[in-house]
Write a protein that binds this DNA or RNA. Structure first.
Lengths: 241, 241
DNA sequence: GCACACTGTGTGCGCCATACACAGACCATA
DNA sequence: TATGGTCTGTGTATGGCGCACACAGTGTGC
């Protein structure tokens, strides 16, 4: 019942006893790397069993000797895309520690935007993901938060980074492409936001200088939002003390 | 250039001038409703052009007279799934107002969990989505926040609800199914979290009473996290004042 | 040296989104 | 009232997808 799915067993390096028959030609991580390469180049849509197999020089169906379904392939991709988290600086305070953690996570998402498109069906159990969890929890170690609250706080930061990423990730921050899309959006919004029906939106648009919309979300807004989240956690810490 | 995509024109009811040829048999909203019905019953995976068409009693290709691609169908679904937002209570303070807004959003996600699986490719421009935006912004009206900060604050709450939903939505809150999955996860985690490599996780698990894991996230944790987010926004308001 | 579990392969199924050509329905115009 | 042109819904087809299944060959543990 607590028996792990095959993919997780492989990721944890739980080798069974030696068996007859040919040895596998490659390892599950090779599949993950090939899939990540495809996704980095062409988005998650470019990842198909046949393309991954072709990338490795194998046939489509051979992959199913390593992975039970495409969803399991996603698990492997998520495990390997981010690499190990940065070490926790024991000298820093909790805000610095969790900020470092969040920025590293954000950078990983920026390198692999497709990660946000993979539906989360269950909480993480793979080795590197647990290391990220470990380091995230460690950030709250000396805050006096209970174990449950620490987990919630970490989850809150995690949710924020993912959410902010969903909005901003996908095109290089501050690129002309993003600015252009943003301008087009504001233009359309101004056209549609009838002041009678949408007074607050209309007023919001009118009272902002044009260059205010050319905001580089990644540079400033991300930290802005993160700080708000951390202020909320700080209030929690104070309340619990 | 600011010409709207066809779907948005239809959603805003921008009818062109009278034209020769047969009148359309139905409206784009019929397609959306049929798709929503399918998604509610069988998840987003159950929504295909052919199934939606069959639901309406039409052929697959007829849908393309109303929608340019499946992505546009998603836009229609998101527009119609949530309905209009609740009216803003002018007597309440900003925390109550945005809390009401967030809970309504959360309830909508609970009714239509598939909404979280639809990748967001651009900010909303459809009528009801703008109404939600309008009401969200209105919650911060008397806080003294700048237009830009109000937008960021609303976005932060929006991100939180979506993120919390991604974790909890999908099965009825507190159902035996969810509790069982949770117990299995904790069991596996305990098995994998070697105290040498993952000391904080291991300690976190050990120091929590067993019934602490049987948490009904939706009931308590959601508000817990939301309050933390709002505390962060409150700190921002205080700083700006 | 041998049995046989296990490897990678080939074929095929049902489903998907959508391109394209077409027949007929309908309305603006004359 | 006649009609031309345009729009509607349909039929057919294409290339891709995930994956089931049967199979041939391989190489290790006995």
């Amino acid at each position: 019942m607590t028996e792990l799915p095959r993919v997780l067993q492989q990721l944890w390096g739980m080798e069974g006893p030696a068996r007859p028959g040919p040895k596998p030609t490659f390892h599950i991580s090779d599949i993950g790397n090939a899939a990540i390469k495809l996704a980095d180049a062409g988005g998650l849509g470019a990842v198909s069993m046949s393309k991954v197999a072709a990338e490795l020089g194998f046939t489509t169906m051979s992959l199913y000797r390593y992975v039970d379904s495409k969803d399991e392939l996603y698990v492997v991709m998520l495990e390997q895309a981010f690499g190990p988290p940065a070490a926790v600086d024991p000298g820093a305070d909790w805000r610095q520690r969790i900020t470092t953690w969040a920025l590293a996570f954000r950078d990983g998402l920026r390198r692999h935007p497709w990660a946000l498109q993979i539906p989360i069906v269950e909480p993480p159990l793979s080795p590197l993901q647990l290391e990220w969890m470990e380091n995230g929890l460690r950030a709250f170690e000396d805050t006096g938060l209970s174990p449950g609250d620490s987990l919630s706080a970490m989850l809150l930061v995690n949710i924020y980074v993912r959410g902010a990423g969903a909005i901003t990730v996908g095109a290089p921050s501050g690129s002309e492409e993003v600015l252009e899309a943003n301008r087009l959006y504001v233009q359309r919004l101004a056209m549609l936001a009838d002041p009678d029906r949408f007074p607050t939106i209309a007023r919001n648009l009118q009272s902002r200088p044009a260059e205010d919309f050319d905001v580089d979300y990644d540079a400033g807004e991300f930290i802005f939002g993160l700080d708000a989240v951390l202020d909320g956690i700080e209030a929690l810490i104070a309340r619990r003390a």
